[in-house]
Computed example of a mutant assay.
Amino acid sequence: MSFRNKIIVITGAGTGIGQACARRLAAEGARLVLIGRRAAMLEAVAAETGGLALAGDAASSDDWQRMLVSILQHYGAIDGLVACAGGMGQGDILQTDDAQWQQAMAANLGTAFASARACLPALKQRRGSIVLLASIASLAAGPGVCGYTTAKHGLLGLMRSLARDVGPDGVRVNAVCPGWVRTPMADEEMQPLMAHYGDSLDQAYQRVTADVPLRRPAEAHEIASICRFLLSDEAAILTGASIVADGGASIVDVPTLAFTRI
């Protein structure tokens, strides 16, 4: 159990990839801190994994001051941070008002920034590791998601800045860039396709991955396995890296797709 007694903080831990990370790391002996805004969901994951559930906004410095006190009182240290908290930023630039823009920045970039800043002093003491959950939206732009795309691009800049600055302290910082992953948030994103085409949920996922080389979305536990690797000593030389986990979606040469229809 390579994570036995390691203290790992996970934001966005109540659902999706964060929940899957909690399950995977708990199975390997980690002692978990589970952070999210929805207390009931966190408590359910805590009951399953034995983690410490702390309800709060990962983008809030005030909340982090309170949560950090609880973490250090309970465990006394932090060995790793997995920043999974995020959300959508729907709409093109003309459809995005100031409040929506700020919400997208806070949910997708502010959460990672505030979490890393709060945990870094403790991580330096243990020469720990940070994993940021980015997206293939960190590498390319989908339609009508201006806030989300911009924030996810910024997340890679944050990862690189952190990796450069804290590397001399022995802290590693990496990012994972998933494509479609079957999570409750992605299920919601399938709803317009289901309504328009009359698809089932499975059919909608098949539609959005029709041109992905592996022809399927990821499962949350598959992304959790990558996060687990990046946190582990097996990745001791990896820092400043962006691991793309998209079934091959980002390698597809879009202008040649017409030839596959022949």
Rank of each mutant, 00 (worst) to 15 (best):
E48A: 13
D202M: 11
I136P: 01
L158N: 03
A195T: 10
D202W: 10
A249T: 01
H221F: 01
V244W: 07
R216D: 12
L238V: 10
A116V: 06
S138F: 04
L54W: 06
A114C: 07
G51I: 03
R126E: 14
A55Y: 02
Y148P: 05
A85Q: 09
R126W: 09
V212S: 01
E189Q: 15
M190L: 14
M1H: 11
V212Q: 06
A106Y: 12
L238E: 07
V45S: 06
A83H: 04
P143I: 05
R31N: 06
R172D: 00
L230V: 04
A114P: 04
L155W: 10
Q102D: 14
A107E: 12
L54H: 10
A141S: 15
V181F: 10
P213S: 04
T96V: 08
A83Y: 01
S135N: 09
A13N: 07
V212T: 08
S2Q: 06
I35H: 04
G16C: 13
N174M: 02
L68T: 14
P217W: 05
V181D: 08
L238N: 11
A44Y: 01
Y205D: 02
E28A: 13
L139S: 08
I262M: 07
A151W: 08
V45Y: 05
R215Y: 03
I237F: 15
V166Q: 01
L257H: 04
A30W: 02
G80Y: 06
Q95T: 05
A186S: 14
G154N: 03
R182P: 00
V33S: 09
E222H: 06
G147P: 05
G91D: 11
L230C: 14
I78A: 02
L123P: 12
L120V: 12
V254G: 01
R4I: 00
P178E: 00
A47S: 13
A235M: 05
T96A: 08
V208H: 02
T11P: 00
V254D: 03
D92Y: 11
S200T: 15
H221K: 02
L81P: 04
M1F: 03
L72T: 08
I226C: 09
L156Y: 09
G142T: 07
M194D: 07
A107H: 14
P192V: 11
N5I: 00
E43D: 15
N108P: 11
I93F: 15
F3Y: 11
A204V: 03
I130T: 01
R172L: 10
N5G: 06
W64E: 05
S161R: 01
V176F: 10
C84T: 03
F3S: 09
L214S: 01
V145G: 05
V244E: 12
A122D: 10
N5H: 13
Y148I: 11
R23A: 09
G16M: 05
L238I: 15
N108M: 13
F113A: 05
S250H: 03
A151L: 12
G170P: 03
L94D: 14
